[in-house]
Amino acid sequence: MGELKQLSIFAENKPGRLEKITRVLAEAGINILAVSISSSVDFGVIKFIVDKPEKAREILRENGFTVSLNPVLAIELVDAPGGLHSVASILYKCNVNIENAHVFVQEGRDKAYLIVEVEDVEEAKKSLSGELLKFY
């Protein structure tokens, strides 16, 4: 079971923030594999799956951003009707509560993963062990 880490960055709700963050990442030669944005009234948290997470965190901090790097579950999705449903059924059966989720396509585009943010990744992995799930 491989581990995938997701970058979270604090951003004010104003134009140009995503532009600035992605510019920093682009200039550092970091490839973004997935992005999701969740926002409140005045601020948001921008999340990335990137190829070099540690380096990305370092470079963003150097540029003054508030960043954290957290483990997430990455569950392979079958490219067929019912693909997401089968994963969701297992998560439900094992009582894994989803805080946030989005989809990430692997470099080379051959596989897609459901990124699942949960309260406790280790705990969730334990609950899901023995299930027919493929992790990143």
């Binding site: 508030t66 954290s68 805080e99 943010e117």
Partner: peptide, 8 residues
Amino acid sequence: QKMFSDEV
């Protein structure tokens, strides 16, 4: 950094 969380 201390106030920050990945959850909004």
